[in-house]
Design a protein around this nucleic acid. Sequence first.
RNA 1: GAUCCCAUCGUCUAGCUUGGCCUAGGACGGCACCCUCUCAAGGUGCAGACACGGGUUCAAAUCCCGUUGGGAUCACCA
Length: 476
Amino acid sequence: MSNVRVRFAPSPTGYLHIGGVRTALFNWLFARHEGGTFVLRIEDTDQDRSTDEAIGIILEGLKWTGLDCDEGPYRQTDRLELYREQAMKLLEEGKAYWCICTPEELETRRKEAQAKGESLKYDGRCREKSLTTPTEPAALRFKSPQDGQTIIDDLIKGKIVFENQVLDDLIILRTNGYPTYNFCVVIDDALMNITHVIRGDDHVNNTPRQVPLFEALGFTVPKFAHLPMILGSDKARLSKRHGATSVLAYQEMGYLPEALINYLVRLGWSHGDQEVFSMDEMVSLFRIDQVQSSAAVFNPEKLLWLNAQYIRNSDPQLVAEQMNSHLQKEGYDEKAYSRIPGGVEALVPPLRERSETLLDMVKGAAPYLAETITIEEGAAKKFLTPAIASSLTKFADRLKMESSFTKEALELVFHGVLEEDGLKMGKLAQPLRVALTGGTVSPGIYEVMGLLGKTRTLDRLRQGIKQAESPTSSSM
RNA sequence: GAUCCCAUCGUCUAGCUUGGCCUAGGACGGCACCCUCUCAAGGUGCAGACACGGGUUCAAAUCCCGUUGGGAUCACCA
């Protein structure tokens, strides 16, 4: 195992969203490619917004995607002492100071500055007060360097230069004693020996605030790689407005985790013209420095297409397993499964060719799982006509006599009727389809009969013929 | 407003590092046709982009500068 260590550090303030999964994925791929370690860290120092429920949802989402971590999850609230210790060290060394400006004062000063068109940064008025034991509520601020430059050699974006004079003396310990994000991140990344910080683009501007902190504490500065954002169709940052953004929502909508991951990896990364990647291929081909530096628009249609690809090309048994939980949610039970010769797995080959999601498959499976069907009125009117009744009857009678129920046998019987009655394939297949499935759309007619089995095929055929003979009775 | 980032078909992208192979390739989506028992799938084809303006060069999508446009960040949130 190499010494490469990366981390995914979500804050548990809501569900795990698509952007988070992409960040996790790129970290995971980098770790796996390098033979390194993937650490999961929960950033829950915001007492007001973090919840245990959210942690559970994040873990569940990550599990579904298959992005397994090697260490963690660590929780920052379990590490509070560590942050305070390091903060005190900075104070003792004169690299931090107590600030007694109240949030209200700061807020009004910011507003004034904004009105005058001046910089909004903290004016540093407590910097030289050197308060040792403040008697009023005080926050601890880090003395940011005010001259020179902070240069980041980003693995994705290249060299980024910041003038240190724009840097704020940021608060590292709040009045309530809790450390702040920018401080915890640095301490954790340092203490966890994180070698590469791979995170969203939105953190670029945090980096020059964090680098001096690493340096002040005598830690090695990790390498940085800032991932481009994922945008919605209107080029604004992806949000609920653009549709589902929670990973688990995609699970519910019948997506395969492999498809989602495959879609996400192509957002910002590519390997020639290749569109479909197995996890193994991704791991071996992925290079962090090949990641695109521009933002990408999330395209649900392409995701759907990829999902369809995965549904069609994955191992049928695997697809059946994934479909199972959706079937259960729809209320189908063992009894329903037992009606199909070959069981649920037999549904996969005929249904998956016309399904983009597992939900589509569940929908398509209905006529075969259910005891009875309802024939669509329009379909009955158009296809179950008196004119076709005799041919259907002939087909039913011969089928009954036929001892085998293989596709070949069915085909033979079916074509026999066609020839004798001078019918084209579609003339008989469509009424038959309606009688057997209740609708005009289904897999091939022989597959349909196979999924129903002989008994149910004949039963439904009989009902259909009855309806064809007297079209006035609209339901069975 | 300040700081930073970004810019190839509608969308994801190849090409950009190391200028000529680019008359700019692929994929999704769209359209047309073929196949066909329905619907799909599949096959074939078509339309569709180097944001703009200057340089540098024999040669620029590729290098440089500017403009424009988009985005991110500026909290005792993360």
